[in-house]
Amino acid sequence: MRSRIFYVWRLIATGWCFLSFSLGGLILAVLVFPLINLVNLFIPESKVKYHRAQEVIHHAFRFFMWQMRVLGIMKMDVIGADKLDSDKPKLILANHPTLVDVVMLISLIKHTNCVVKKAVFRDPFMGGVVKAAGYINNDGTDAIIDQCVAALKSGDNLIIFPEGTRSVPGQDLKFQRGAAHIAARSGVDVIPVTITCDPPTLSKADKWYHIPSRPFHLTAEVGDAMDISNLIDSNEPPAIVSRRLTKYLLDYFTQRLNQFGLARARA
Protein backbone atom coordinates (compact mmCIF):
# COMPACT_ATOMS: atom_id res chain seq x y z
CA MET A 1 0.00 0.00 0.00
CA ARG A 2 2.75 2.44 0.94
CA SER A 3 4.65 1.71 -2.25
CA ARG A 4 1.42 2.29 -4.20
CA ILE A 5 0.97 5.70 -2.56
CA PHE A 6 4.62 6.51 -3.28
CA TYR A 7 4.10 5.49 -6.91
CA VAL A 8 1.14 7.87 -7.29
CA TRP A 9 3.16 10.58 -5.54
CA ARG A 10 6.03 10.11 -7.96
CA LEU A 11 3.65 10.16 -10.94
CA ILE A 12 2.18 13.49 -9.82
CA ALA A 13 5.65 14.86 -8.99
CA THR A 14 6.93 13.80 -12.41
CA GLY A 15 4.05 15.59 -14.08
CA TRP A 16 4.81 18.67 -12.01
CA CYS A 17 8.47 18.52 -13.05
CA PHE A 18 7.56 18.45 -16.74
CA LEU A 19 5.13 21.32 -16.25
CA SER A 20 7.51 23.39 -14.14
CA PHE A 21 10.31 22.90 -16.66
CA SER A 22 8.21 24.51 -19.39
CA LEU A 23 6.85 27.22 -17.09
CA GLY A 24 10.37 27.96 -15.87
CA GLY A 25 11.52 28.37 -19.46
CA LEU A 26 8.71 30.80 -20.13
CA ILE A 27 9.43 32.82 -16.98
CA LEU A 28 13.12 33.06 -17.89
CA ALA A 29 12.30 34.14 -21.43
CA VAL A 30 9.67 36.70 -20.47
CA LEU A 31 11.04 38.13 -17.23
CA VAL A 32 14.70 37.29 -16.68
CA PHE A 33 16.42 37.42 -20.07
CA PRO A 34 15.04 40.86 -21.05
CA LEU A 35 16.56 42.09 -17.78
CA ILE A 36 19.89 40.48 -18.65
CA ASN A 37 19.77 42.04 -22.11
CA LEU A 38 19.30 45.39 -20.44
CA VAL A 39 22.28 44.78 -18.13
CA ASN A 40 24.37 43.66 -21.13
CA LEU A 41 23.52 46.92 -22.83
CA PHE A 42 25.09 48.94 -20.03
CA ILE A 43 27.75 46.55 -18.76
CA PRO A 44 29.00 44.56 -21.76
CA GLU A 45 29.87 40.93 -21.13
CA SER A 46 33.57 40.69 -20.42
CA LYS A 47 34.75 37.49 -22.05
CA VAL A 48 32.34 35.35 -23.94
CA LYS A 49 28.98 36.37 -25.33
CA TYR A 50 25.91 34.76 -23.75
CA HIS A 51 27.74 33.91 -20.49
CA ARG A 52 25.22 35.67 -18.28
CA ALA A 53 22.24 33.89 -19.81
CA GLN A 54 24.10 30.58 -19.70
CA GLU A 55 24.82 31.07 -16.02
CA VAL A 56 21.16 31.80 -15.27
CA ILE A 57 20.22 28.54 -17.00
CA HIS A 58 22.92 26.72 -15.01
CA HIS A 59 21.36 27.89 -11.74
CA ALA A 60 17.82 27.17 -12.96
CA PHE A 61 18.85 23.62 -13.87
CA ARG A 62 20.63 23.16 -10.54
CA PHE A 63 17.34 24.07 -8.91
CA PHE A 64 15.49 21.66 -11.20
CA MET A 65 17.80 18.74 -10.38
CA TRP A 66 17.41 19.56 -6.67
CA GLN A 67 13.65 19.68 -7.08
CA MET A 68 13.57 16.21 -8.64
CA ARG A 69 15.63 14.85 -5.75
CA VAL A 70 13.58 16.39 -2.95
CA LEU A 71 10.34 15.27 -4.59
CA GLY A 72 11.67 11.71 -4.43
CA ILE A 73 11.66 11.05 -8.16
CA MET A 74 15.38 10.39 -8.43
CA LYS A 75 18.75 10.07 -6.77
CA MET A 76 21.87 11.56 -8.28
CA ASP A 77 25.58 10.84 -7.87
CA VAL A 78 28.34 12.73 -9.62
CA ILE A 79 31.94 11.53 -9.54
CA GLY A 80 34.71 14.00 -10.40
CA ALA A 81 32.54 17.11 -10.92
CA ASP A 82 35.57 19.33 -10.21
CA LYS A 83 37.07 18.28 -13.55
CA LEU A 84 34.38 20.39 -15.21
CA ASP A 85 35.44 23.57 -13.39
CA SER A 86 38.50 24.75 -15.35
CA ASP A 87 38.39 28.05 -17.22
CA LYS A 88 39.86 26.57 -20.39
CA PRO A 89 37.28 25.82 -23.11
CA LYS A 90 36.29 22.17 -23.02
CA LEU A 91 34.42 19.78 -25.23
CA ILE A 92 32.24 17.68 -22.92
CA LEU A 93 31.20 14.39 -24.48
CA ALA A 94 28.57 12.18 -22.87
CA ASN A 95 26.45 9.18 -23.65
CA HIS A 96 22.74 9.97 -23.67
CA PRO A 97 20.46 7.52 -21.81
CA THR A 98 17.76 9.97 -20.65
CA LEU A 99 15.90 13.19 -21.33
CA VAL A 100 17.48 14.91 -18.31
CA ASP A 101 21.17 14.26 -19.22
CA VAL A 102 21.65 17.73 -20.66
CA VAL A 103 19.87 19.32 -17.71
CA MET A 104 22.19 17.49 -15.32
CA LEU A 105 25.32 18.42 -17.32
CA ILE A 106 24.38 22.11 -17.53
CA SER A 107 23.63 22.02 -13.78
CA LEU A 108 27.28 20.93 -13.30
CA ILE A 109 28.89 23.48 -15.67
CA LYS A 110 28.62 27.19 -15.01
CA HIS A 111 28.91 28.34 -18.63
CA THR A 112 28.39 26.05 -21.54
CA ASN A 113 27.01 25.91 -25.02
CA CYS A 114 25.18 22.91 -26.39
CA VAL A 115 23.53 21.74 -29.60
CA VAL A 116 19.74 21.82 -29.56
CA LYS A 117 17.39 20.39 -32.11
CA LYS A 118 15.55 22.79 -34.37
CA ALA A 119 12.10 22.08 -32.89
CA VAL A 120 13.17 23.46 -29.49
CA PHE A 121 14.01 26.84 -31.05
CA ARG A 122 10.38 27.09 -32.16
CA ASP A 123 8.98 25.83 -28.85
CA PRO A 124 6.89 28.56 -27.16
CA PHE A 125 8.30 27.69 -23.72
CA MET A 126 11.93 26.84 -24.41
CA GLY A 127 12.58 28.83 -27.59
CA GLY A 128 13.40 32.04 -25.72
CA VAL A 129 15.80 30.22 -23.41
CA VAL A 130 17.89 28.52 -26.09
CA LYS A 131 18.10 31.72 -28.15
CA ALA A 132 19.18 33.87 -25.18
CA ALA A 133 21.93 31.39 -24.29
CA GLY A 134 23.32 31.34 -27.83
CA TYR A 135 22.87 27.60 -28.08
CA ILE A 136 23.64 26.06 -31.47
CA ASN A 137 20.62 25.23 -33.62
CA ASN A 138 20.89 21.78 -35.17
CA ASP A 139 19.26 22.45 -38.51
CA GLY A 140 20.37 19.09 -39.87
CA THR A 141 23.16 20.46 -42.06
CA ASP A 142 26.91 20.04 -41.58
CA ALA A 143 27.23 23.76 -40.86
CA ILE A 144 26.75 22.98 -37.16
CA ILE A 145 30.24 21.42 -37.10
CA ASP A 146 31.68 24.83 -38.04
CA GLN A 147 29.49 26.56 -35.46
CA CYS A 148 30.60 24.13 -32.74
CA VAL A 149 34.28 24.65 -33.55
CA ALA A 150 33.75 28.43 -33.60
CA ALA A 151 32.01 28.34 -30.20
CA LEU A 152 34.92 26.43 -28.64
CA LYS A 153 37.49 28.75 -30.24
CA SER A 154 35.63 31.76 -28.83
CA GLY A 155 36.16 30.31 -25.34
CA ASP A 156 32.81 28.62 -24.75
CA ASN A 157 32.46 25.14 -23.35
CA LEU A 158 30.38 22.77 -25.44
CA ILE A 159 28.33 19.67 -24.59
CA ILE A 160 27.94 17.09 -27.35
CA PHE A 161 26.22 13.73 -27.27
CA PRO A 162 28.15 11.74 -29.92
CA GLU A 163 25.18 9.41 -30.38
CA GLY A 164 23.26 12.35 -31.83
CA THR A 165 20.10 11.25 -30.04
CA ARG A 166 19.14 9.31 -26.95
CA SER A 167 20.53 5.78 -26.50
CA VAL A 168 18.32 2.81 -27.28
CA PRO A 169 18.06 0.81 -24.02
CA GLY A 170 19.66 -2.61 -24.23
CA GLN A 171 21.50 -1.91 -27.47
CA ASP A 172 25.17 -1.23 -28.12
CA LEU A 173 26.17 2.42 -28.27
CA LYS A 174 26.35 3.86 -31.76
CA PHE A 175 28.27 7.10 -32.36
CA GLN A 176 28.04 9.54 -35.22
CA ARG A 177 31.34 11.12 -36.23
CA GLY A 178 30.46 14.80 -35.75
CA ALA A 179 31.88 14.89 -32.21
CA ALA A 180 35.22 13.54 -33.46
CA HIS A 181 35.36 16.15 -36.22
CA ILE A 182 34.73 18.89 -33.64
CA ALA A 183 37.38 17.49 -31.27
CA ALA A 184 39.99 17.18 -34.02
CA ARG A 185 39.34 20.61 -35.50
CA SER A 186 39.03 22.59 -32.26
CA GLY A 187 41.98 21.02 -30.42
CA VAL A 188 40.43 21.77 -27.00
CA ASP A 189 40.40 19.45 -23.99
CA VAL A 190 37.93 16.60 -24.35
CA ILE A 191 36.22 15.61 -21.09
CA PRO A 192 34.19 12.38 -21.17
CA VAL A 193 31.15 11.99 -18.92
CA THR A 194 29.66 8.52 -18.57
CA ILE A 195 26.00 8.65 -17.57
CA THR A 196 23.94 5.76 -16.27
CA CYS A 197 20.32 5.59 -15.25
CA ASP A 198 18.96 2.72 -13.18
CA PRO A 199 16.27 1.64 -13.78
CA PRO A 200 16.23 3.03 -17.31
CA THR A 201 13.63 5.79 -17.79
CA LEU A 202 12.96 8.95 -19.82
CA SER A 203 14.33 7.31 -22.95
CA LYS A 204 13.04 8.25 -26.36
CA ALA A 205 10.41 5.50 -26.20
CA ASP A 206 9.07 6.63 -22.80
CA LYS A 207 6.21 9.06 -22.29
CA TRP A 208 6.36 11.26 -19.19
CA TYR A 209 3.88 9.08 -17.30
CA HIS A 210 5.91 5.88 -17.92
CA ILE A 211 7.66 6.22 -14.58
CA PRO A 212 9.89 3.42 -13.25
CA SER A 213 8.87 1.10 -10.42
CA ARG A 214 11.22 2.91 -8.03
CA PRO A 215 13.02 6.29 -8.03
CA PHE A 216 15.67 6.27 -10.74
CA HIS A 217 19.33 6.63 -9.88
CA LEU A 218 21.26 8.91 -12.18
CA THR A 219 25.06 8.75 -12.05
CA ALA A 220 27.64 10.79 -13.93
CA GLU A 221 31.29 9.83 -13.92
CA VAL A 222 33.50 12.66 -15.17
CA GLY A 223 36.70 11.31 -16.67
CA ASP A 224 40.11 12.95 -17.01
CA ALA A 225 40.80 15.05 -20.10
CA MET A 226 41.43 12.57 -22.90
CA ASP A 227 44.84 12.46 -24.52
CA ILE A 228 43.85 12.27 -28.15
CA SER A 229 46.69 14.26 -29.73
CA ASN A 230 48.38 11.05 -30.88
CA LEU A 231 45.19 10.06 -32.72
CA ILE A 232 45.07 13.31 -34.69
CA ASP A 233 47.50 13.61 -37.57
CA SER A 234 46.88 16.83 -39.45
CA ASN A 235 48.38 15.33 -42.62
CA GLU A 236 45.62 12.76 -42.79
CA PRO A 237 42.21 13.41 -44.33
CA PRO A 238 39.58 14.36 -41.70
CA ALA A 239 37.44 11.41 -42.81
CA ILE A 240 40.14 8.99 -41.60
CA VAL A 241 40.98 10.90 -38.41
CA SER A 242 37.30 11.14 -37.44
CA ARG A 243 36.84 7.41 -37.93
CA ARG A 244 39.81 6.54 -35.72
CA LEU A 245 38.80 9.04 -33.06
CA THR A 246 35.17 7.90 -33.08
CA LYS A 247 36.26 4.31 -32.54
CA TYR A 248 38.45 5.44 -29.63
CA LEU A 249 35.56 7.36 -28.06
CA LEU A 250 33.12 4.52 -28.60
CA ASP A 251 35.53 2.02 -27.02
CA TYR A 252 36.01 4.32 -24.03
CA PHE A 253 32.30 4.78 -23.33
CA THR A 254 31.46 1.13 -23.97
CA GLN A 255 34.19 0.08 -21.56
CA ARG A 256 33.09 2.57 -18.87
CA LEU A 257 29.44 1.51 -19.18
CA ASN A 258 30.44 -2.15 -18.88
CA GLN A 259 32.40 -1.30 -15.73
CA PHE A 260 29.36 0.42 -14.27
CA GLY A 261 27.21 -2.56 -15.16
CA LEU A 262 29.62 -4.93 -13.40
CA ALA A 263 29.91 -2.70 -10.34
CA ARG A 264 26.14 -2.63 -10.04
CA ALA A 265 25.83 -6.40 -10.39
CA ARG A 266 28.31 -6.89 -7.55
CA ALA A 267 26.78 -4.27 -5.26
Binding site: D142, R177, G178, P237, P238, A239, S242
Partner: peptide
Protein backbone atom coordinates in the same frame (compact mmCIF):
# COMPACT_ATOMS: atom_id res chain seq x y z
CA UNK B 1 29.42 6.93 -44.77
CA UNK B 2 27.87 10.12 -43.39
CA UNK B 3 26.84 13.45 -44.85
CA UNK B 4 30.32 14.90 -44.26
CA UNK B 5 31.84 12.00 -46.21
CA UNK B 6 29.34 12.56 -49.02
CA UNK B 7 30.75 16.05 -49.56
CA UNK B 8 34.27 14.61 -49.77
Amino acid sequence: LDSIDAVD
